[in-house]
Write a protein that binds this DNA or RNA. Structure first.
Lengths: 338, 338
DNA sequence: TCCTGGCACTCACCTGAGCCGAGTGCCAGA
DNA sequence: TCTGGCACTCGGCTCAGGTGAGTGCCAGGA
């Protein structure tokens, strides 16, 4: 077990290293922090911390830098979440309040997060998985051509064109629309399939084919739109990464372009509370030298999507976590209002 | 006036520099290209080219590199557009044919362009400015709540919720829908305002308010959706930029995040034919060390949007132009088919 | 048992000297 | 007008030496 002071030394190392970006030595530590002991003692503590794998030396006769494991301990035990200042909070609120629609909310959120944390921001669009149906509409564009419009409770609207094999009467259409809505409005996407399963049977033989087609398109839409989208921003902040550029930055940029990867990354985060994945804890190869701070957000008590930032493992965890949490909360409020 | 051979020397310099990324000297030139003259002669030519400002020396006793002006001459006079190989063409077609909707087309186009050119790709969504209306639909979601759906000939669907002051009868709604469609279907967005101008007058006094509201939302939608969106990809290719990283890449990444800047950039490109802007020809400060190759594309003879790539001024212009042109053509075909 | 000061050692980094070679400009001759 | 020759420039590489931050270890003191 590590003594109290050793933990304190680890904290000091992390803080200094995050600030200076340079390996930190025992003497500098005692000068910058009031540890109340001499450099020699700190050296012993450092040796112990190194034995445990919390810190490492880039080379002999250099200072120490935290390892992934060290950051992990720091985040779990030593670091709080730094709350934002009230001007910052007001700025967030003002900025987000200006949003006009969902796209705008997400766009602003990304910019805000990137700016506050000075890192790469990733914001997932509110997922439809937990969404409910507000309304389903069917329009006849032509005798054998329909349009299906799906409106969700999060304000998203999806539409699909449907080519039917046979013309479909206005009466039947109105009928289908009414029955469809009575079954699915207010229901969750995931429940829809079984709710409409037996619908074709209740129609005339002639219309069953078309009804089935419409239903299959509807279900397809639900599935497709459950596929999650996201927006990223602040990639320019990657230039603050380190000195040995191309090598470090390239895989990160590549990973960021693979939205699938990012969605998986966010998906791995806990639904509630904040998730911090440090360095090699990230499965994706290109992100092993980055940390991801993610958090769920939503209009109510339940998270409908996630957002987070990607930055170097050497990041200001308390500050980043504070910013991410604050932004997620405000976005949740905005979503709840609209 | 530059002699034929001097132009040939310039071409050789550009080609070698693009290939090797290193200043090219007179001896190396004569070895790699069959110029039929000695290095000394080439040196004289180089001196002349330097006097004219087409090439420059990074420092004394180094080879020459082309200036922006040199690239300009190269592109205008010396370089053709390199057609793609037929396997490449087939690959493009196959890849684009797999697209399921507009978003997918744009997404695939971006990835394709980025991959083919190994640079950053920028693709503008087909603009609605020149689009025509395929259908307008009005749905009553609640007595005093309507939904407006607008379908364009490019397959885009936009919708808006409308809160009316007073309830609106089913009859009036059907009436409005019919009259609206008869006036605007097949018409251009830009013509719609005047086509519906007098519509409220033909309704009962009671309904005029609502009709006006609907119309104003429709017009608003037209304007808003004319605002152009775009998608970018291949930013990881920026890492191939140069050796002196952070400084070069940062402003570029920043510029790429400003979609407004990119839209302006594409907007400055000619509607037809290819536009190449080299280095300082780009107004935006962050892009003065990049070149932009842009081209319009569209479903018919007319361009509905633009696409292009952003890369270092030291790029393979013939190849890039060939790839951009080919992709634009195929995308045009895809759009025309759907 | 834990902390401290002292001491020898390591090693990345900086600096300056020296060499090398690619590249240039100029000039006289074909 | 082209060519070969020649002196010159200068960035980049390598090598050696000096510097200093940092370490590990140890003996002595609280």
């Amino acid at each position: 077990m590590l003594s109290e002071r050793r933990l304190e030394v680890l904290r000091a190392i992390v803080q200094d290293y995050v600030g200076t970006e340079e390996p930190v030595g025992s003497k500098a530590l005692t000068e910058r922090h009031k540890l109340g002991v001499s450099p020699a003692t700190v050296r012993n503590d450092m040796a112990a911390l190194e034995d445990e794998g919390f810190i490492a030396q880039p080379h002999t006769s250099a200072g120490r830098i935290p390892t992934d494991k060290g950051y992990r301990l720091f985040v779990d035990k030593l670091a709080g979440v730094k709350p934002l200042s009230s001007p910052e909070r007001r700025a967030i609120q003002n900025f987000l309040d200006g949003a006009v629609d969902l796209d705008d909310v997400v766009g602003r959120t990304v910019r805000l997060l990137a700016q506050l944390t000075r890192q790469v921001a990733v914001v997932q669009y509110p997922s439809l998985t937990r969404s409910t149906v507000r309304h389903v509409e069917l329009l006849a564009l032509a005798p054998a051509r329909l349009m299906l419009v799906l409106i969700t409770d999060t304000g998203r609207v999806e539409q699909r064109l449907i080519d039917c094999q046979s013309p479909f009467g206005e009466m039947s259409l109105a009928d289908l629309r009414a029955r469809l809505n009575s079954r699915v409005v207010g229901r969750r996407f995931t429940d829809v399939p079984q709710l409409v399963q037996d619908l074709p049977e209740s129609f005339e033989q002639d219309d069953r084919g078309t009804v089935s087609t419409v239903l299959s398109v509807l279900l397809e839409t639900l599935v497709e739109e459950t596929e999650e989208r996201l927006m990223i921003g602040g990639t320019a902040n990657l230039t603050r990464f380190g000195h040995d550029f191309p090598l470090t930055i390239r895989p990160v940029l590549e990973a960021l372009e693979e939205h699938v990867v990012l969605l998986k990354l966010l998906g791995e985060a806990k639904d509630s509370g904040m998730t911090v994945r440090i360095g090699h804890e990230n499965a994706h190869e290109g992100l092993t030298s980055t940390s991801v701070v993610a958090v769920g957000y939503g209009s109510g008590d339940e998270a409908v999507a996630k957002m987070g930032v990607v930055g170097p493992t050497r990041m200001d965890y308390p500050g980043t976590m504070g910013a991410v949490r604050a932004v997620a909360r405000y976005v949740g409020q905005i979503l709840a209002e609209s």
